[in-house]
C-alpha cells in the first residue's frame, strides 16, 4: 500500500452511474511512483470507465480522483500535461504521416515544432518505426500502429502512462516487442497503469494489480501472491471426473471448481494430494500444470460469458 501523499494516482470511493447502470461502484486504489499497476476485469466490469475518469474523460458521480496529488476535476489541465494516454481504439490521425502524427500531437502540449521533431525521431527509433516515418497511418500494420500510439503517448515525456488494452489484437511478435519496450520504460522509473484481458501480460508486467468485477474491486495484490492465495501452486485438471473423485475432494476439503465434464483442483505447494489423485482418479485425461493468474481471474469472476 502506498501513502496517499506520495501516490501518483489516488482513487477514493469512485462511483460512476450512467442512466440505469452503475459502472463503477466504490472503487479505491493508489499507485505509487515507479509502479506498474494493473486493472483487470471482464468486459463491462468498469475498467475503462475507471481509467477514463483518471484523465477527466468521464466525470465521477461521486468520490475523488487525484493524480500527482491534484484533483482531476479542478486541475485537469495540469494533470493532463503530465500524463500519456494510450487509448483502446486507434486514435491516430489518418490525415497525417507517421512523424506528423507525433509533431502535431506535441503541439497540443505546447511543445515547439523544433523540439517535437527531436523527440519524435528519438521515439520512432525506440519503437522501431524510423523506416516508416513518412508512411501514411493507414499503411501501418496493427503492431506498428500500436507502437506509434504508444510513441505518441510519450511525446510529452509523461510521468504517468495510462495503457488501455495496449496489446489487444496483436500478433505474438508485436506483443513481445511491446512488452520489452514497456519493461525498459518501467526500468527508467515511469509509472504505468495498465488494463488488459491477457493474464500473461499482467503477470509479466505488473508489480501490483486489482481485479474488478461489477464495478467493485474483488482482490488486490502482487500477481504471484494472488496466484498463491487463490489458485495454489499447481493445478490438476481431470477430464470426465467420476463420483469417487468428487467424494474424495469434498471429504478432503480440497480447493476445486467443478465444470461438469472437468474438475479443476487447486493444489498448494508440496502437497501429497497431487500424487494420490493422479494415481487413483486419472481415468481419462489429466493435465497437470503450474497455477496462473488466469486461474485466479476465472475463479474470482466466474466462467460464464459476459456479452
Amino acid at each position: 500500500m502506498v501513502g496517499l501523499v506520495s501516490a501518483v494516482v489516488a482513487v477514493e470511493n469512485l462511483v460512476k452511474r450512467f442512466r440505469d447502470l452503475t459502472a463503477v461502484d466504490g472503487v479505491s486504489f493508489t499507485v505509487g511512483r515507479g509502479e506498474f499497476f494493473g486493472l483487470l476485469g471482464p468486459n463491462g466490469a468498469g475498467k475503462s470507465t475507471t481509467i477514463r475518469a483518471l484523465y477527466g474523460f468521464s466525470p465521477p458521480t461521486s468520490g475523488t480522483v487525484r493524480v500527482f496529488g491534484m484533483d482531476i476535476r479542478t486541475r485537469w489541465r495540469a494533470v493532463k500535461a503530465r500524463i500519456g494516454v494510450c487509448h483502446q481504439e486507434n486514435t491516430l490521425d489518418p490525415d497525417l504521416s507517421v512523424q506528423e502524427n507525433l509533431w502535431i500531437f506535441a503541439g497540443y502540449f505546447g511543445i515547439p515544432l523544433a523540439e517535437a521533431k527531436v523527440r519524435a525521431s528519438e521515439l520512432l527509433e525506440f519503437f522501431a518505426l524510423n523506416h516508416k516515418k513518412d508512411a501514411k497511418v493507414a499503411d501501418l500494420s496493427g503492431g506498428m500502429a500500436r507502437r506509434l500510439i504508444l510513441a505518441r503517448a510519450l511525446i510529452n515525456r509523461p510521468e504517468l502512462l495510462i495503457l488501455d488494452e495496449p496489446t489487444t489484437g496483436l500478433d505474438p511478435q508485436s506483443r513481445h516487442l511491446l512488452w520489452e519496450r514497456l519493461e525498459s520504460l518501467k526500468a527508467e522509473g515511469l509509472t504505468v497503469l495498465l488494463t488488459t484481458h491477457y493474464m500473461e501480460e499482467a503477470a509479466r508486467l505488473c508489480d501490483r494489480l486489482v481485479i474488478i468485477d461489477h464495478g467493485k474491486i474483488l482482490v488486490e495484490g502482487a500477481p504471484g501472491d494472488l496466484v498463491a492465495r487463490y489458485a495454489g501452486a499447481e493445478v490438476l485438471e481431470v477430464g470426465g471426473p467420476d463420483a469417487a473423485l468428487r467424494r474424495y475432494v469434498t471429504e478432503n476439503r480440497l480447493e476445486y471448481d467443478d465444470l461438469g465434464d472437468r474438475l479443476i483442483l487447486y493444489v498448494p505447494e508440496g502437497s501429497s494430494i497431487l500424487e494420490i489423485v493422479r494415481t487413483r482418479f486419472c481415468v481419462r485425461q489429466c493435465t497437470w500444470r503450474r497455477s496462473t493468474l488466469e486461474d485466479v481471474f476465472l475463479r474470482l469472476t466466474g466462467r460464464e460469458l459476459r456479452e
Partner: peptide, 14 residues
C-alpha cells in the same frame, strides 16, 4: 470515424 477529438482530449486541450 477518426476519433481525432478523443486523442486531443487526452492532452491539455479542453
Amino acid at each position: 470515424y477518426q476519433k481525432t477529438f478523443d486523442g486531443m482530449l487526452a492532452t491539455p486541450l479542453s
